[in-house]
């Protein structure tokens, strides 16, 4: 099955990204962050399978939904509450390949957790990335609270909460959307629907086709978007973020997507997914689709692509070498920071 060519022109004859207000540089930047998220992830699997690190959890296949929506936000002043697949979101918000690899190897210098949490449990106060744990959907309420504080102080920051459709079954999801709707909070809820809660397919998680349909019950719009079309994700997120910033309240975006890997390095997805299904979705790879678009739009010529590839590879190599050699925490680190006691340098 051939990869589908992305529509290059929007209505009015302009190229799609420009009609969305994205410059060529911004369009390429989105592509590069997607590539970096994928490349770091692929390297982690390689290292995991070599037995050099115990665990990996993946973003692969969901980079379009992640970077496309995050790109509509303002890193630095806006906030994100990501979930464990959101490498694309946190890279867009300023994390680096080194940060990710330090977390992957659980080193002392890991800025997310000092090597305490599993990989994928992102957090940085400085970058406005709310720390996440492993219980799902709790971060949606945190996002509502962050947005409440912005409203209380009359600031125009927007907070985006990211979650899988699995987390949509949790009570916290309902409580967060209900509260955000009541107070018209500047929250964008982004559901990355990859069709499975580990092995449980959507048909056994809910009796409806679209998580976005639930938004009506909370008094705000719900939008379904092709999660593997990064510009489409950007477009709906742009509208949701603008609406939130105007004080008109939340939006629920449901990005239909797919994870290319097993749930984690400890999962075997062959037990519950057909190889044919995975192959079909790989043909819809958001990175390849976007690359075709950028080439057809005339801004991703071979030398540009080569430069991006080189930068990405260089960052992944550097991050791997740096993090693998970085020191572990010491046993003395076990008991620090139970409470606020020390300031991070």
């Amino acid at each position: 099955m051939a990869l589908k060519t992305t529509e290059v022109e929007a209505k009015g004859g302009q190229s799609r990204h420009r009609s969305l207000g994205l410059s060529d540089e911004q369009a390429l930047r989105i592509y590069e962050v997607m590539r970096l998220a994928r490349a770091v992830d692929e390297r982690m699997w390689l290292i995991n399978r070599q037995g050099r690190a115990p665990f990996v959890i993946s973003c692969q296949g969901q980079e379009g939904a992640q970077v496309g929506t995050a790109a509509a936000l303002r890193p630095g002043s806006d906030w994100v509450a990501p979930y464990y697949r959101d490498a694309g979101v946190v890279l867009w918000f300023g994390m680096t390949a080194r940060d990710q690899m330090l977390s992957f190897f659980a080193r002392r210098e890991d800025p997310n957790s000092g090597g305490r949490q599993m990989p994928g449990h992102f957090g940085s106060r400085r970058l406005h990335i709310v720390t996440g744990g492993s219980p799902v959907a709790t971060q949606l309420l945190h996002a509502a609270g962050v947005a409440l504080a912005s409203k209380q102080r009359k600031e125009d920051a927007v907070t985006a909460a990211f979650f899988g459709e699995g987390a949509a079954s949790q009570g916290d999801t309902h409580e967060a959307m209900n509260f955000a709707g009541i107070h018209k909070l500047a929250v964008v809820f982004v559901c990355e629907n990859n069709g499975y809660a580990i092995s449980v397919p959507q048909s056994h998680q809910m009796a409806i086709q679209n998580v976005a349909d639930r938004a009506a019950g909370y008094g705000f719009p719900g939008v379904v978007v092709d999660g593997n079309d990064v510009l489409a994700c950007y477009e709906v997120a742009r509208q949701a973020v603008d609406r939130a910033r105007r004080g008109e309240g939340p939006t629920l975006i449901e990005a239909k997507t797919y994870r290319f890997t097993a749930h984690s390095s400890d999962d075997d997805d062959k037990r519950y997914r057909q190889a044919e299904e995975v192959a079909i979705w790989r043909q819809k790879d958001p990175i390849q689709r976007y690359a075709i678009y950028l080439r057809e739009a005339g801004i991703l010529q071979d030398p540009v692509e080569a430069e991006i590839t080189e930068r990405v590879n260089q960052q992944v190599d550097d991050a791997t070498d740096y993090a693998e050699q970085a020191p572990d925490p010491t046993p003395d680190d076990l008991t620090t920071f139970v409470f606020k006691q020390e300031h991070k340098p």
């Binding site: 509450a81 309420l141 609270g145 409440l148 916290d172 209900n178």
Partner: peptide, 28 residues
Amino acid sequence: ELRVIDSPLAESCIVGVAIGAAVNGMRP
């Protein structure tokens, strides 16, 4: 009403929202 907030009848919401507000500079 922005500093004395009647919440829905949902305890996880009360605490979870308080956590988020505390992240963003408030003392709930």
